[in-house]
């Protein structure tokens, strides 16, 4: 087993919380893990990414070579497109949040971003923020992203749910339950949506 993925977003969106959940799940499986993070200046509203590598054998590089990532999980639609050269052109998936973060003057028309994402053969595009708000858990958009990506990840959903429960245990049972509800709803949505095969 070897699985490389990139988590992409904007500084301040908390993409490291997604990495932490997947890292927790990987440890329960006894896998090796390498997870490269961005700290410092770029965190102030700049483009940020986390390279996450899981394997049952020792992992060498902290960075994923180009063309190898099996998933780009993007918490923002523009950022979904920034790291495409790292995506495996034959097997890679693009899972992206529709909700734009417009903290720059030259932000493109979001519909052109959605079209570029939909042009990719394996994608899932949805609004994680809306889904989280609908379930009265507005801060759980990142957990919604994890749920939407979960059918592509090398874990049983129960393993990820256990990681969510452990991560939020400190904040009480109602927070755990609302996060699990968001995870399940997003996963269901991702499984329900037919895969586009159009180029």
């Amino acid at each position: 087993m070897h699985y490389d993925m990139i988590i992409a977003g904007v500084g301040g969106q908390g993409i490291l919380s997604i990495s932490a959940l997947i890292g927790r799940a990987a440890l329960t499986r006894g896998w090796h893990l390498k997870q490269s993070e961005v700290h410092g200046m770029a965190q102030r509203g700049g483009a940020v990414q986390s390279h996450l590598r899981l394997s049952d054998r020792p992992i060498h590089s902290d960075l994923i070579p180009r063309g190898r990532a099996l998933l780009i999980l993007a918490t923002e639609p523009l950022e979904a497109l920034r790291y495409l050269p790292w995506l495996d052109p034959e097997k890679g998936w693009l899972v992206a949040n529709e909700e734009p973060v417009r903290n720059m003057a030259a932000y493109p028309d979001p519909t052109t971003l959605y079209a570029a994402i939909r042009a990719f053969p394996r994608y899932f595009l949805f609004n994680a923020d809306t889904l989280a708000r609908q379930l009265q858990a507005p801060r759980a958009a990142n957990v919604a992203m994890l749920g939407a990506a979960s059918p592509r990840l090398p874990f049983e959903p129960e393993t990820l749910e256990a990681a969510i429960a452990a991560q939020f245990a400190r904040k009480g049972d109602s927070v755990v339950q609302s996060n699990l509800a968001v995870f399940r709803a997003a996963r269901k949505e991702a499984l329900r949506t037919p895969i586009s095969l159009a180029p």
């Binding site: 102030r44 483009a47 190898r68 790291y83 495409l84 493109p108």
Partner: peptide
């Protein structure tokens, strides 16, 4: 020969860090 994924579409501008709102 390194592998290469799809190119970055031209509509993607850089997103430099900025002061918070």
């Amino acid at each position: 020969n390194p592998r290469e994924g799809p190119p970055v579409p031209r509509l993607v501008p850089p997103r430099p860090p900025s002061l918070c709102r």
